[in-house]
Structure formats: C-alpha cells, structure tokens
Amino acid sequence: MTSDAHTADRATDAFLAHRNLLFTVAYELLGSAVDAEDVLQETWLRWVEVDLPRVRDPRAYLVRITTRQSLNRLRARKRRKEAYVGSWLPEPMLTAPDVAEDVELTESVSLALLLVLETLSPTERAVFVLREAFDVSYDEIATALGKSPAAVRQIAHRARGHVHARRPRTAVAPGEVRAAVDSLQRAFENGDLQAVLDVLAPDVVLVSDGGGVKQAALRPIAGAAKVGRFIIGGTGKAGSRLTGVPTVVNGSPALLVQLDGKVDGVMAVRVQDARITGIYYIRNPAKLSRIASEVPLTLR
C-alpha cells in the first residue's frame, strides 16, 4: 500500500469512528438533521486535506472542524429564519427506545432544550453545547472559536444562566411521558375534547410548525381550552381521520401523526406532574426526513 493510500485509509477510519459524535454535535448546534448532514460533508472535505501526522487528537480536531462549519451555517441561517412562515421548530429525529435511558443524551437533544438554544447567539450556543453536552475543555473550545479561554469561560457562564432560566426544571421519567402521550393519542383519535383537556395542564402551550406548506398556527397557542380545540378540530380537513403511532423522537416518547393513513407530522410533548405542559407539532414536510429510520446519536 502506498503512503498516500495508507493516509487516506487512516483519514477515513478516523472520520467513520467519530461520525455519530460529529453528527450529534452539528445537530445540537443547528437543530436540523439536514443541515447537520451537510456540515458532515463539509467536515469530511476539510479533514481529507489535513496533514494527519501532525494531528495528535483526531476526535478533537474533527469536532473543531464541525463546530466551525456549524457556526458558519448558524450565522447564515438568521436571514432564512426571519423569512420563515409561522413558528420554527427543530427537525425531529427517530431515535432508538434505549436512548431514553441515557438521561444526559436525551436532555441534550430534547426539542425543549433545542428551542431554548435558539435564543442564544451562535457563539453562546457553541460554547454551551460543547461544554455542557460534550464536556470539551475550555482550552479546546477556545481553539475552535478563536477566543481566549478566559473569554470562553465568561461566555459559558452567561449561556448557562440563560439556558437554566428557561429550560424545564425537573426531569420526567419516560414512563410518565409515555402515559401522557398515550392518553392524548386516545383522546384525539376518539375526538373527545374533554379527554384531551383532562391530560393538558391549564397553562399548556402548543407550537406548530407547517413552514407555510402545511396548516399550522402562526403563533403559539396558550391555554388548555384553545389547545384542545386546535388538536380536535384544527389539524385536518372535515371528515378526515387523525391517528397517532407511538414512537420515540429525540429520545422521548412521541407520536407519529397520520391523517387518513398518511404521515402528517410528529407530535412531541413536555410533561410535568402527569399533565402535558407543552406540545410541539412539526408538520413541515421538509423536516420529516429523519422519522423513517433511527438516527444513531452519541455524546462520546
């Protein structure tokens, strides 16, 4: 084997060994599996141009490339989001049921946390994700972002406070979430408004994302009565049948919603004290490409 071929094999092996990690990093930074896949392609193109003998830690180097490419996309995406029709929600991903048993991983890819991360600046988001989810050192984050370790520590402190003030306060067992999701499924399949109201918290908020392609509320809907009416009567055409298929999305129990037997969207929830406090309903077809097969994720 020639030296060039051997180097190419080493580059490929290193990239494949860390691919799931790199995808998870990009997804947490972007909230989009499609964009994360594009970032991985860009990372690969830059990785094969690297002088491998000079790379002491391939994992750290690859994470650095992925972070920089993700930041470029985050900064460019601002204009695209400003023109988005209605509410924007992260792209849901079908995950293996056992992901729910990894509390740290489930929390880091939850739709609720990803929405909170959208309120951070690109740099704050990168620092928070790399430090809190992937335990990257301040020095390595500083190298990736072109900042001093002291500056990174300050950004991390600010971002951590912002996120902690907005994220759900308590962790909920997957079984409790599944019970609430199952109750919601039975209620809307039966068209039973009272049963829907019984599983909703009084101050529940529903956010629906149709991207201007599918019918969706342009703004979040607040309050059990309004949310209940939307679920029963506002998601499909008169005479159509809405059903739900239990699934696991972003590590948490959810529903694959079908309208007359065809995939209509994904419905994920936040639960507290056995009641649903938040509903995320993603109907935009462009965001449903990762619900047909499980997406492997990892923090290590």
Rank of each mutant, 00 (worst) to 15 (best):
E91A: 07
A201E: 05
A126T: 03
L16S: 11
R125W: 09
S110V: 02
G234Q: 10
A292R: 11
L288G: 04
L94F: 11
L62K: 08
V172H: 04
S110Q: 00
H164W: 12
D4S: 15
L288H: 04
Y281T: 15
E118P: 14
V85D: 11
V48H: 03
R167T: 11
F128K: 07
V181M: 00
L62R: 04
L197G: 02
A26M: 07
R275I: 05
A14P: 15
G210W: 11
T67Y: 13
L62E: 09
G161A: 02
W44Q: 03
A96K: 14
T123G: 12
T67Q: 11
P92M: 08
S32T: 01
L114P: 10
A201T: 07
K78Q: 10
L114E: 03
L115K: 11
I221E: 10
R166F: 04
E107H: 08
G86Q: 05
V245H: 03
L40T: 06
L256F: 08
D209C: 02
A83G: 06
L45D: 12
N20L: 12
E189N: 05
V109A: 11
A60D: 13
Q272P: 13
Q41T: 10
T243L: 02
V48M: 13
V248T: 07
I282N: 05
D38C: 09
D51N: 14
V103F: 15
S208H: 06
D203N: 11
Q272L: 13
G278T: 07
S183N: 11
V55T: 12
Q258D: 08
A173D: 10
L40I: 04
F128D: 02
D264R: 12
V99F: 07
R80A: 14
V207S: 14
P97E: 00
L111I: 15
F188H: 03
P122T: 02
W44A: 13
P92A: 05
A33Y: 00
S87N: 10
A254P: 05
H18F: 11
Q194Y: 15
V152W: 03
